[in-house]
Design a protein around this nucleic acid. Structure first.
Lengths: 163, 163
DNA sequence: CCGCTCATGTAACTGGTTACATGATTTA
DNA sequence: TAAATCATGTAACCAGTTACATGAGCGG
């Protein structure tokens, strides 16, 4: 994010996390501020004091080493846990569906299908917004999220049928 | 897992994690043993000493409260991060693909498509094994993992075309 | 100038990873 | 019976969450 957003404050990085639609990126201050300091200590970021700012804000830039680290992160082969089966809380729950009596299994599927449909509507809406904004990477990512969500939704229908 | 595997040792639970194809479930001893003890302290599990075992192994069973907790976990609405956009390390990387010059972007896609194809072959193989074993929940989960992996694979093809 | 939100943190708690220790059991 | 591996842990380290503190800047 510092690579992308040029010289920027930790707070700007934090905002990117807070605004991300992916809920695993919480953007809590207690994670971001220490992480940025770690990256600077590791030599991947460099900072200078911001002008006319009473808060002592520091502006960060990526270093050459940081750039190299980014490129390494984008160089295959990716680690196993990047391409392997992604964790899916719904799939995990289905593994233990037999805990419930059959009637409640159907209720589970009803509820989750409903939630997934709402989620799909949000994703389509978000994708429209991002297409309008004209940022190609964001549009691609939104498309990816949508395709995966659709696959999960179709799978849930199969689960119901096999029940 | 204790619900499913009847009275069982912590090590049996650990084996389930170690054998899981989902790489985020590492099954490290330093996670499992303390977790099982926490569950017992919370009253969700109960244990007794195993007969004729020199290691002082304890066998765990789920309690009524544990059973209730399991059912609550399976009762919609699920939390947002369970149905929301799942984190996907490949998608995250694509967001920052512009770090690379165009030739290396193609190399990234080549490598990841190759890895995903291998992963798909493994998933199909695993699914066959699980279908043969005759465990319906495992077969459903394997099917879900396969559908999601296929969606990711198709999306990567779109990414290449849009490049 | 008062209160709100912006912005930058910090501290205690929680929990996972890595690496090691130890004794039981099995196998060659 | 010696070596391997099974099984049960523990300790140090690392990193994220929650909740709080503090001061800057701004809008009425």
């Amino acid at each position: 994010m510092v690579w992308r957003d040029g010289p920027c404050s930790t707070y700007q990085v934090r905002k990117s996390f807070l605004e991300s639609p992916t809920p695993t990126w919480s953007g809590s201050a207690g994670a971001i501020y220490p992480a940025v300091r770690r990256l600077e200590r590791a030599g991947l970021l460099r900072s200078r004091k911001a002008d006319r700012d009473g808060r002592g804000t520091r502006l960060y830039r990526i270093t050459t080493a940081g750039r190299r680290a980014l490129e390494a992160w984008l160089t295959p082969p990716l680690p196993d846990d990047a391409v392997g089966i992604s964790s899916d809380p719904v799939r995990t729950r289905v593994l233990f569906l037999e805990v419930l009596p059959p009637a409640r299994r159907r209720k589970f599927l009803d509820g989750v299908e409903r939630q997934l449909d709402e989620h799909l509507a949000e994703l389509r809406e978000a994708r429209r917004a991002v297409l309008a904004s004209g940022e190609p990477s964001l549009a691609l990512a939104a498309r990816g999220a949508l395709l995966v969500a659709r696959a999960r939704r179709r799978w849930l229908r199969e689960v119901r049928e096999s029940l």
